[in-house]
């Protein structure tokens, strides 16, 4: 794996990576990014570049994550003296800092009140709006967070991140249909995101009561996610899981005659997949999962990028399957 890089950190940072990132703080903090020379000379001898500030921002997140509040404070002061404290982004960073330092719900409430003040002056500050929702979430006020998110999305319906968050909140509350709707919006914005396809498939899979049509949808979305990314472990895992659940149901529908099938056809988007197809898909998924587990175990080059927990889960699924067959 490449060594963690502050300029372009990975999208999901493991605790170990975060620690490695935040340990880079002392050398960065010891050098001063802006020149201390008087004005005309400072223009010539500055080592400042846009990257400097990206590094500072990422370092800020990493040090907050690892509890290095002192460094975070220093970076925040540096950023707000460079860009004004009223800058939208700096306001957000300050909010994150305060949230991280808040120990009790009362302190969080204070941060929350602060956000309300900012939003009253500046209703278009979407990042503060999102921080406000995050505080609501960490205070456990899910309903209010949902309301706030719907207001945000009413005003900015092209925000995939917010749609995904709303979908998550709905899923937590068990409102599957709403969650699916939100994820569909995410897909409309990023149509080829296999992660979003897998997420929507998971939601269909979890929908209660599960019927042939919801499971078929889950199957199709999982299939789409692995079609987009052939080595997507979660997609293959889900594909296997769904098809295993779907095979007995399809067999039953097949045995129960065409009466039920006909009635369902009317409001259904597409006929459910054929039994043989699903069986074949299950075999394919099993084969792929076994390959990934094997290659990951052997530490083959190009196969080590998987999340360890996911590989273990896949191995367990395969093992369970093997026992039943035996």
């Amino acid at each position: 794996m490449a060594s963690p890089n502050l300029l372009a950190p990975p999208s999901s940072i493991t605790p170990a990576t975060a620690l490695a990132l935040s340990q880079k703080a002392p050398p960065i903090l010891s050098t001063h990014p802006t020149s201390t020379l008087p004005w005309p000379l400072s223009l010539l001898f500055t080592s400042e570049s846009p990257e400097t500030w990206t590094i500072h921002e990422n370092l800020f997140y990493a040090s907050l994550r690892t509890g290095d509040d002192k460094s975070a404070r220093l970076i925040l002061d540096r950023l707000s003296s460079r860009f004004s404290p009223a800058n939208e982004r700096i306001l957000t960073l300050r909010g994150i800092y305060e949230e991280a330092l808040a120990k009790t719900p009362a302190e969080l409430e204070k941060v929350f009140a602060n956000y309300e003040n900012v939003l009253r002056d500046e209703p278009t500050n979407f990042s503060i709006r999102k921080r406000r929702i995050a505080v609501l979430k960490s205070l456990g006020r899910r309903e209010e967070a949902v309301t706030a998110l719907t207001v945000l999305l009413e005003n900015s319906p092209t925000d995939a991140e917010a749609w995904a968050e709303l979908g998550d909140l709905y899923a937590q509350g068990g409102c599957w249909a709403q969650a699916v709707f939100c994820l569909e919006e995410v897909l409309l914005i990023t149509p080829n995101a296999w992660g979003a396809h897998a997420q929507i498939a998971t939601l269909h899979y979890l929908t209660t009561p599960s019927t042939v049509s919801t499971l078929a949808l889950a199957l199709r979305h999982f299939a789409r996610s692995v079609e987009l990314n052939e080595s997507y472990l979660r997609g293959w895992y889900g594909l296997k899981l769904v098809s295993k659940k779907l095979i007995p149901m399809l067999a039953e529908v097949g045995r129960g005659g065409n009466k039920r099938g006909n009635r369902e056809d009317e409001d259904e988007d597409a006929p459910p997949p054929k039994l043989e197809t699903v069986k074949k898909l299950e075999e394919l998924a099993t084969g792929k999962l076994a390959e990934i587990v094997r290659m990951y175990g052997a530490g083959k080059k190009g196969w080590t990028g998987f999340d360890e927990a996911e590989v273990i889960a896949a191995r367990e699924l395969l093992d369970r399957d093997g026992k039943i067959e035996r």
Binding site: E154, N155, P157, T158, E184, L187
Partner: peptide, 24 residues
Amino acid sequence: IRQQRSLVRGMNLRANANVLTPSS
């Protein structure tokens, strides 16, 4: 902002409609 992004939403719907089920 709302006006502009709502329009973009419609365009997104038009461009990426093929990910949706026919009913939705």
